[in-house]
Design a protein around this nucleic acid. Sequence first.
DNA 1: TACGCCATCTGTAACGTTACAGATTTACTG
DNA 2: CAGTAAATCTGTAACGTTACAGATGGCGTA
Lengths: 336, 336
Amino acid sequence: MKTETVPGDERPTLKTIAFLTGLGVTTVSRALKNGPEIGEETKERVRQIAKQVGYRPNRAGVRLRTGKTNVISLILNTEEGAMGLVSEMVYGITEALADTPYHLVITPYSLSDPMEPVRYIIETQSADGVIISRTEPRDPRVSYLLDHHMPFATHGRTDMGVVHPWHDYDNESYAYNAVKLLAGRGRKRIGLSGPPPQLLYARHTARGFERAMRDFKLDVFPLSTLNLDAPADEIRRSGREIGLASDRPDGIVCSSAMSALGLVGGLEEAGLRIGRDIDIVTKQSSSFIGWYKPEILTIREDFRTAGRDLAKSVLAWIDGADPATLQHLVGPEGAV
Amino acid sequence: MKTETVPGDERPTLKTIAFLTGLGVTTVSRALKNGPEIGEETKERVRQIAKQVGYRPNRAGVRLRTGKTNVISLILNTEEGAMGLVSEMVYGITEALADTPYHLVITPYSLSDPMEPVRYIIETQSADGVIISRTEPRDPRVSYLLDHHMPFATHGRTDMGVVHPWHDYDNESYAYNAVKLLAGRGRKRIGLSGPPPQLLYARHTARGFERAMRDFKLDVFPLSTLNLDAPADEIRRSGREIGLASDRPDGIVCSSAMSALGLVGGLEEAGLRIGRDIDIVTKQSSSFIGWYKPEILTIREDFRTAGRDLAKSVLAWIDGADPATLQHLVGPEGAV
DNA sequence: TACGCCATCTGTAACGTTACAGATTTACTG
DNA sequence: CAGTAAATCTGTAACGTTACAGATGGCGTA
């Protein structure tokens, strides 16, 4: 015996509510999205019943009919060993999506074909918005997404004369503050271990560093070949050499916790004591550096906020906001 | 002018292929899933055209019709500061899903309501399979998913007399090998800084530790109050105290890189030199410990493999495999 | 009274897919 | 040569939703 017209304990649909209220399916649909042509009284009744039966719109139905996926794609390179950075960003994104109908889908790619995921997303129309994590100064993914009118936001700025939402850590301000911190502790001779020079924020970092060095009238210890993408043992070796040099610095500004750890290892090997003979400042996203060596000075970089911010920007763009208004430069909130 | 029957440059559907081949839509559908009632020649022709026009099945269509979502949900607690662990697992999962139609969706939850995501997934039928990351010995999510016949896999075993796929690091073997490593370096008096005692793998770790201590006839240095969930500064302070104790150990086995770093910080503060006065062994998932202090001994724990493994198990269960065969205990592959 | 207009509601069709129940052709059996 | 089975193909309907083009009724106006 099949009860044809009386819905049982299956997942409720618009039909279920239509049946229970005696209204048409269309009316229920319009009522739930608060359409103007439905009576206020009816709307209320529909909402009541909908809540009662625990109605949740069927994503596949909506997506098939409207093309809206309610998906935000985070594009990740799975080859980089990005440590806590990625999880913090993911957490931030999920926070921003929490009270929305959006789901977060992780879309991986390998360095051999960085365009693959964006192409896939455009071709299969599998997302309403995209977040790009390792943005290049001239990023072909950015042009591609722009060409195909897909809302997105990038972590890090681009340098291609094109407008789009982004979130960037204010590395100029970081470097300035880092130097200032060292100056405040009486340090005179400072080195900078920055990002690889081809990345855009290497320029920002250098600018902040140089400005502060002038402002505080300090000596630059040249350290140019050393960037945070160098192999671990090389960084460590550099640290050792620096520590043994006759004109060694008494302060170093690092652009990543990894390179700071490597340097510290080398410096200690050379017999220096951090905090006494030399001070190291670095960015800190998770809290592990503090766990290990409170002597290392840190300035906060918050990837969770970055994620939240990026997600919000994408949603805003989807909702029609002007992308030019969705660009955020977030500085260090202060030394920790 | 609308060209009604001649599909243009829109995304190709089954209809497009049907039009191009002169076949019926149904036939094309059956042909592409290699159904038995379609001629070999026809199948080949359909496949040709499908590839030519770049056909990709519409997920919403499939999902609406069949209920298959092609989604695997990873359930993550966004409150824990899980460092590299999470990203590595995510990467592993995406590797396993790479050549499948499955997408990875991140579903967050807060400690205030751990059941929320699984309830949501069941109620909205929004995934074909689930991966649970921080498994409790008696995990209500496990029972719930079992009750609702949702395939899943857990990272870490449960202790509730119930069969399901899981992946677990062999902490007993880890602890045994860690002690063995210390014994091989001539260490005599060893302490264990394990996981919080209520977690299941604390028991495994302790078992391996004790067995090895007996086998190699070593002295246990009691360190029981110290577990890896203790606050950072407490761990560090303990390290200092341990270093200053008259009966101090000459070896410590740690269950996490975090606690190892904290301990090392404290021990060095107390004037000890790692690798000379005392040896520390810890698990290592990412490579950052090696970057900082090669003196710390490490045994590998591979979260990427864990993720790959978990995803594969879920897919296998979805495809009808016996969950009892999808349980993997993965040991350390050797000291690094 | 007739007309039109507004407010409110309804049915049909379509998004792309697949299950199902045929339809057609071919080949083989008796 | 009829009859049937096998092989191959097809159309219809449905999944849950929403856009669109009506339908219905009440009410004010001419």
